[in-house]
Design a protein around this nucleic acid. Sequence first.
DNA 1: CCCTGATTCGC
DNA 2: GCGAATCAGG
Length: 209
Amino acid sequence: MSWTDERVETLKRMWSEGQSASQIAKELGGVTRNAVIGKVHRLGLSNRDEGTEAEATPAAAAPEPAKPEGKAKPAPKARPAQKAEPAKAEAKPAAPTEPEPATQSAEPSAPAGFSNRRPIVPAGQPLPPQPSANEISPEALANVREVEKKARKLTLMELTERTCKWPIGDPATEKFWFCGLPSQAGKPYCEAHVGVAFQPMSSRRDRRR
DNA sequence: CCCTGATTCGC
DNA sequence: GCGAATCAGG
């Protein structure tokens, strides 16, 4: 494989999007992450800083559902689909009336735009949380929204023990995928999603509404 | 162990 | 220019 204009373009785009060299290599195919890194350096764009490094922006916290981003991405690559987690979905009946929270420790909360009320959730075993996003700190929420733009948008079959299993979108529609960013240290989610999934009781104390 | 990018250096 | 091997880290 050689570095055609098109491939270089993809490289540049993904690199500036913050994708890792290995992810870019997989996308391109026919090259290793070393090749990608080497090329990145030769292109002199090792400095992955963009013009817009948005950080703490206390404003804007509108839970906008993850946008699919209408882009015609030519991806004729066939995904090998790695080992899939066995998934036996046992319909977990949602209490018709009111759920009885018998928990006193940290509880998982749900991503914005995650509609439940129906056991049609794919099959991720332990996954899907519930609650509402209004209990998540604005910071964490903003962070998550940012991260979800970079989501690898994996399908259930593509998840591994080391990919973030945070669901994004509505399972009832095609606009549904899993974050897929690298999860670390045995957790089921990436850092950002761990942040909103596991909250200390303290921060869950009644929030005004 | 999984992963990341950075560098070197024979090709 | 290219990228495998290696290094240095998380």
